[in-house]
Design a binder for these strands. Structure first.
Length: 572
RNA sequence: GCACCUGUAGCUCAGCAGGAUAGAGCACAGGAUUCCUAAUCCUGGUGUCGCAGGUUCGAAUCCUGCCAGGUGCACCA
């Protein structure tokens, strides 16, 4: 659509020039609007703002624009209508259809991929769970949003490095080490590592309330760890390995991939250099026995670089990580997919990097998101008030299995097993990505386990219908010859044609719900088509044309689902 | 206290680089299955777009103030 909009804008500029009005292309493109209703056409151009220049009512100006296009016609435009102050362009569905077919024939399943970001390197830091803490529903957000961005950027042609920035360093490990030494049991740890570590963690906080000296012990233990003390190191490694192994399972279920898994600990030997750099730039100050970079001039609290006991903080490690990544990957842009409660932290350390003279600090971006909360408050690992992700996934998968047993008992046990896994995990992923990430999400089992209407399975359902048609229509050859006879076919073509524009705005806004909502729209257009137009059993030309529409729909659904990181089944 | 985010139908949310009569899903009621799987579709109706001003030919959308909820504000991440 972008190329076409360009063309129309050029014509409008010519028209305005004839009337002694100068206009920039960007401004015209900016004014284009998508009409609210299908019958109003595909591109609307409001002319109200030219009423003064022309000294005429908008409707008359719109008529003149229409006249200009009729004198200088564009083949893509089927019809132009003037309604109120709008010039409504109706784009030829045949032209759109043929363009889609051509693209598909050239590129096949990669039809939606482009090279708008070709040659650009992106680093996406996401997921980043804390070792020794269970993977809660809260971690789901960073994981699926980051995975979505990684997929989207790739399909736009970018070189992407997705990094799982594991939280494997910090005072929390001091706590865990102390707790394990005091109350730990090797056997139980091996049995169910993460759950056991969580119980130790919870117990630590409970006992620390009575006995604050535990906190000091924890700080000491972490300091020992940083200094390389062998006893602490060994325990830490054990915790880390056991946790990672469990996370792997979850990532597999979620269809999430990383290019690098580099924990915070990885940067621990790169921190001295950071301190030195900041020192050389004269940014470091001692304050209350700690080393800080003051940010008063920027209306922010100081950024802590070293604690009064000499231990590092996560800001320090983040700075080291950023420098390392710039030097290693030479990124054009870096995304941090982290909750909005850390907004200030990112503002602070971005500013510190900028002050240290790293001009690429401007290329870093915090992709923030709201948190999952209960009706009556926040989730908290410390208090054990969490919903585990595995729990949610299992529940969804089980619920789907029940539905499948009831609706489709003909499938084999194995197939039902596989499909319910795909649908269940997909439902959870879709549910997370379908709303604007900026908003908090109220966790509700009813909402999460509702598979009707605007849900993951609804998307899957359409895809499965497409597959079904393909099985039934095996003998029919799909054809690029346009023979639309029903309005639902045209509506579907127009919706299919939007996909690439949607991908771009999803990228520009870094928001998954653009894609998710598009898929819902596409699905709705498809079901209307599905209920009105049969593929099998019609005249040859009509069947072939419709089969092509089904093929395009099927592949667009697949493409969108791939970008969201959601798998689709062939049957359900 | 200061900063940032959010406030749209009973509920969950789209729409918010100003533009046409503010839309979906859920829930509720009724209807559709000799036909590519009814996890579907069709029909029903709801709104002081948090409140008050301002900018504009035009504001849910932009600006200001207020209200409500959330988040953050030095040794946790």
């Amino acid at each position: 659509m972008i190329g076409l909009k360009d063309k129309i804008a050029n014509s409008i500029i010519d028209f305005l020039k004839q009337n002694n009005i100068d206009a920039k292309k960007e401004d015209i493109l900016f004014m284009f609007k998508k009409p609210e209703k299908l019958e109003f056409g595909d591109i609307a151009f409001p002319v109200f703002r030219y009423a003064k220049d022309f000294r005429k009512p908008p409707v008359e100006i719109a008529e003149q624009v229409k006249g200009f296009f009729e004198a200088n016609p564009l083949k893509e435009i089927e019809k132009i209508e003037v309604i109120n102050g709008y010039v409504n362009f109706h784009i030829s569905p045949q032209w759109m259809f043929e363009k889609l077919v051509k693209e598909f024939e050239e590129k096949g399943e990669d039809f939606y991929k482009s090279d708008v970001l070709k040659g650009k390197t992106f680093v996406v830091e996401f997921s980043s769970p804390n070792i020794a803490k269970p993977f809660s529903i809260g971690h789901l957000r960073s994981t699926v949003i980051g995975n979505f961005l990684r997929n989207l950027l790739k399909s736009l042609g970018a070189n992407v490095i997705g990094i799982n920035h594991i939280g494997d360093w910090g005072t929390q490990f001091g706590k865990l080490i102390v707790a394990f030494k005091l109350w730990g049991n090797e056997e139980e740890l091996e049995k169910d590592p993460v759950k056991y570590m969580l119980s130790l963690y919870v117990r630590f906080h409970k006992e620390a309330e009575e006995n604050p000296s535990l906190e000091d012990k924890a700080r000491e233990a972490f300091l020992n760890l940083e200094k390389g003390s062998e006893e602490e190191r060994k325990l830490w490694e054990k915790f880390r390995t056991l946790s990672l192994k469990e996370f792997e399972k979850t990532y597999k279920r979620l269809n999430v991939h990383f290019d690098k898994v580099l924990g915070e600990a990885f940067y621990s030997d790169k921190i001295d250099r950071v301190v030195k750099i900041l020192e050389e730039k004269g940014l470091l100050e001692e304050s209350e026995n700690a080393l800080v970079v003051k940010l008063d001039d920027y209306n922010m609290p100081p950024c802590l670089i070293k604690k009064s006991d000499g231990a590092t903080l996560y800001a320090t490690r983040d700075i080291a990580a950023a420098i390392y990544r710039k030097e290693t990957f030479d990124f054009d842009r870096m995304f941090y997919v982290v909750g909005s409660e850390q907004k200030l932290h990112f503002k602070q350390f971005f500013k510190v990097l900028e002050l240290a003279g790293f001009e690429w600090a401007k290329d870093m971006e915090h992709i923030d998101f709201g948190l999952y909360r209960f009706k009556d408050g926040k989730m908290s690992t410390r208090k054990g008030r969490v919903i585990l992700l595995e729990e949610v996934l299992d529940e969804a998968v089980n619920r789907i299995k029940e539905i499948m047993n009831e609706k489709n008992p003909d499938l084999t046990e194995e197939e039902r097993e596989n499909v319910s896994e795909i649908l269940g995990t997909g439902a959870i992923i879709f549910n997370d990505l379908k709303n604007d990430r900026i908003k908090d999400v109220q966790f509700s089992w009813d909402e999460v386990l509702n598979f009707e209407g605007e849900s993951g399975p609804y998307i899957s359902y359409s895809f499965v219908r497409c597959k079904g048609i393909f099985r039934k229509a095996e003998g029919i050859e799909e054809s690029g010859k346009y023979t639309a006879t029903h309005e639902s076919e045209i509506a579907l073509i127009k919706k299919l044609f939007e996909f690439k524009d949607i991908m771009l705005s999803a990228y520009n806004n870094r928001k998954s719900h653009f894609i998710a909502n598009y898929l819902l729209d596409l699905t709705k257009s498809f079901t209307t088509f599905y209920h009105n137009c049969r593929v099998v059993g019609e005249d040859k030309g009509i069947s072939s044309f419709r089969k092509m529409l089904v093929k395009l729909t099927m592949n667009t659904l697949k493409a969108g689902a791939d970008i969201l990181g959601m798998r689709l089944p062939d049957r359900m």
